[in-house]
């Protein structure tokens, strides 16, 4: 992997915008933030593939588009396959001299959790195995938000959704979240990372690294959803930050299937209750439920620290 120059501060982020305002994302939807930063990093020589989902419907109702880079939507389950085709076409057309071979064209897929961890998983795995030079960005809002907050494989343990309602017998999702980034990492691709819009430079640098590798890369970004997680839109970044501060979300990267790093160390960890109590989707959780989740996270932290070889995420202090 060629080492890209990394951003040190917000001041170094490009000023150009490749997502126009006027789009129909919910007020405070952090997909807007994630995509804006992504496109700033990727620049104009980028072809974007988006599966069906919030981002797709709210940015491209004919005759309007928010995209200033070439963009295609095909269906829900196949963004990775479409991106494979785009990448192969660019390669073939450049080799044959039909498209300027000196121009480096990025191919980026941006999908939600449903289109990535569930229905789009097969196409994603195929794309990764074949080694296409595509950066796949997953904006994970942990449910099918576009159809109205239904459970997905990425929905966390005990969370309320409209298909995991809080009833007398069953309360929220019964299973834990699918560890998609680690499943992707098992494909041994050149770059896998998890990111958080509350740590914007860390996120931007991960996009930059993902675009620099000669093969597939995967960036899993947490995206607090004001509508589905039930919180006032002004707290989106705050909740995203709490996710990392509580280690409910750990920002890591894996380069060449060798170098594993936690890019946002958390020496003093917060209790998961701070993250959970900030969201309506967890309203039904008892203190006992929260402790159960805390124990699960403690184990996860232990596992990650072991992988790194030192304590990058510390004990719960508040």
């Amino acid at each position: 992997m060629s080492k890209p120059t990394l951003y040190k501060s917000i001041f170094e982020l490009p000023r150009e915008e490749y997502l126009s305002p006027g789009h129909g994302l919910c007020a405070g939807c952090l997909v807007g933030t994630i995509v804006r930063v992504l496109l700033k990093v990727a620049g104009p020589n980028t072809i974007v593939v988006t599966p069906t989902g919030c981002l797709e419907v709210s940015t491209t109702p004919f005759p309007y588009t928010a995209w200033k880079v070439p963009w295609i939507h095909v269906a829900f389950e196949n963004a990775a396959a479409v991106a494979s085709g785009v990448e192969a076409a660019v390669k073939a057309l450049q080799r044959k001299g039909l498209v300027d071979p000196s121009k480096k064209i990025n191919v980026v897929a941006i999908g939600g959790d449903g289109g990535t961890v569930d229905i789009g998983f097969q196409a994603l795995s195929g794309m990764l195995e074949r080694g296409h030079r595509v950066m796949y960005v997953l904006y994970d809002n942990e449910a099918y938000m576009n159809t109205g907050i239904q459970r997905s494989g990425a929905t966390p343990f005990k969370a309320w959704t409209t298909t995991t309602p809080v009833g007398k017998v069953l309360k929220g999702k019964l299973q834990p979240k699918k560890p998609i980034a680690e499943i992707v990492a098992a494909h041994k691709i050149p770059y896998v990372a998890t990111a958080n819009p509350a740590y914007i430079i860390d996120m931007a640098n991960k996009f930059r690294k993902g675009l620099s590798v000669d093969g597939p890369s995967f960036i899993h970004v947490i995206q607090p959803c004001t509508t589905g997680w039930r919180f006032d839109p002004r707290y989106g970044i705050k909740i995203a930050r709490l996710a990392t501060e509580t280690a409910m979300w750990i920002n890591w990267e894996l380069e060449n299937n060798e170098v594993f790093r936690v890019t946002v160390p958390v020496p003093k960890r917060k209790h998961v209750k701070h993250y959970i109590r900030a969201q309506g989707r967890f309203n039904h959780l008892t203190d006992q439920d929260i402790e159960e989740i805390q124990r699960f996270i403690d184990k996860e932290v232990e596992r990650i620290n072991k992988m790194v070889g030192k304590e990058v995420i510390g004990p719960v202090v508040e």
Partner: peptide
């Protein structure tokens, strides 16, 4: 259904 004007969503204020 192609849209030929990049970023024309800006024509619609929110």
């Amino acid at each position: 259904g192609a849209i030929l004007k990049p970023g024309n969503f800006a024509e619609r204020p929110t």
